[in-house]
Simulated assay, not measured.
Amino acid sequence: MATTDTISVPEIHCGHCKASIEGALQPVAGVTSAEVDVESTSVTVTYDESVVTRDTLVSTIEEQGYEVPR
């Protein structure tokens, strides 16, 4: 079953941030879509909870060098 979650990433501020985060999340198994909104500094991810967890998504964002408040 698909879940859509919005993850706050306050350090997002430009197109490079958008490309970096979307590029890291989209190939993750179970992720259907990942869209960064630079203006709201958030990432909206649709994913299959039976394949990938929110913690994995957060870790993937953090591996790109962005801090995710928990």
Rank of each mutant, 00 (worst) to 15 (best):
I21L: 02
E35C: 06
D55Q: 10
V38Q: 10
G15E: 09
V9I: 07
T60W: 14
V38R: 06
Y47M: 05
R70K: 14
A24G: 04
I12Q: 12
T46S: 12
S33C: 05
M1T: 03
T3F: 02
E11T: 10
L57Q: 10
P69V: 11
A19V: 02
D37N: 15
K18V: 11
V51I: 15
E62K: 10
E67C: 01
G15A: 02
A2Y: 07
T46G: 06
G30K: 07
R54K: 10
S33D: 09
A29E: 06
V52G: 03
T41V: 13
T6D: 02
T56G: 05
P69D: 13
V36Y: 15
C17N: 00
R70P: 08
A34K: 14
V31F: 06
D5L: 02
E49K: 12
S20H: 01
G30H: 13
E35Y: 03
V31L: 12
H16W: 06
A24P: 05
V45T: 10
S8L: 15
V36G: 11
H16N: 07
D48Q: 11
S20Q: 00
I12V: 13
E49I: 07
V68I: 08
V28R: 10
D55I: 00
T32Y: 02
V52R: 04
S42T: 15
V28Y: 01
S59L: 14
H16S: 08
P10D: 08
V52W: 06
M1P: 04
Y47G: 03
A19W: 10
A2Q: 01
T32C: 00
D55C: 02
L25R: 08
T41P: 02
A34R: 06
T53D: 01
D48E: 14
A34G: 09
V43M: 05
R70A: 09
V45H: 03
V43T: 03
E62R: 13
R54P: 00
C14P: 00
T6A: 10
V68M: 03
E35R: 14
E11R: 13
T53V: 00
V51C: 09
D37S: 15
R70T: 06
H16L: 01
T41E: 15
E62F: 07
